[in-house]
Amino acid sequence: MRRFTYHEPATLDEAVSLLAAPNAQILAGGTDLLVELKEQLRRADCVVNIKKIPGIAGLAYDDKAGLRIGALATAREVEVSPLVLDKYRSLAQSVRELGSIQVRHRATIIGNVCRASPSADTIPPLIADGASLRICGAGGERTLKVEDFFLGPGRTVLKPGDVVTEIVVPPPPPGTRKIYIKHGRRKAMELATVGVAVTHVPGAETRIVLGAVAPTPLRARHAEDLLRGKRLTDELIAKAAQAAVAESRPISNVRASAEYRREMVGVLTRRALEQLR
């Protein structure tokens, strides 16, 4: 790694001002940052470790507000939480697919979101569940839907100095069913070729979010429209799967061709919906 200065701010305000400097990088889990610094994909003149800041750690649940995931909450904390498995099953499924146990002990959920990889596993379930981010920056605090956070691969609406302090995921209405299916070339330590998250509220709405098939995680809105308030019949599921295929905009890369990805969007969307009815 190239030389950088290192800071451990004790408050959020201090972190925000340190991060406003050019080439300042935020360090929470570090599992993406250190790789990118070593491979010189990213430059850091200054690294700001936010782990000493009080009040941004851990998970908390409340029947009204839902699940709060703090900036320092690791993927492993989410993975082993019985509450997450019970109420946020698709998020729990996606986290098991992220890296290895060693990585998950360091990597944070918010880091996975802020890295804004089109193939990130945790993002489709969070969007399907209607999650929001709380951002603290020079201009104060603001909240934003996770869905509106991404601009492109590796790009978000965050400005220099911004820190995402928490993600809030609304409580599931009674009877809600959720699933995340990841498709990869191997079972472990793999980036998704295609990921599909579905949150199904019977009699109300079904949200379908596709990963790794567009520059940002993508809601399959036409497919959702077909299913709104309806019972998931074979015929309707087939139509929704086709709609999702038409909405996807995949590229070809080392992991799969665009044609293959499109085909898999149909297969996985159908499979996900069949398992939720």
């Binding site: 570090g30 060693q102 360091r106």
Partner: peptide, 13 residues
């Protein structure tokens, strides 16, 4: 007590 990749952690941490 937690298993981690020591290559993905700074010594100062």
């Amino acid at each position: 007590g937690k298993p981690v990749n020591s290559c993905l952690m700074l010594g100062v941490e």
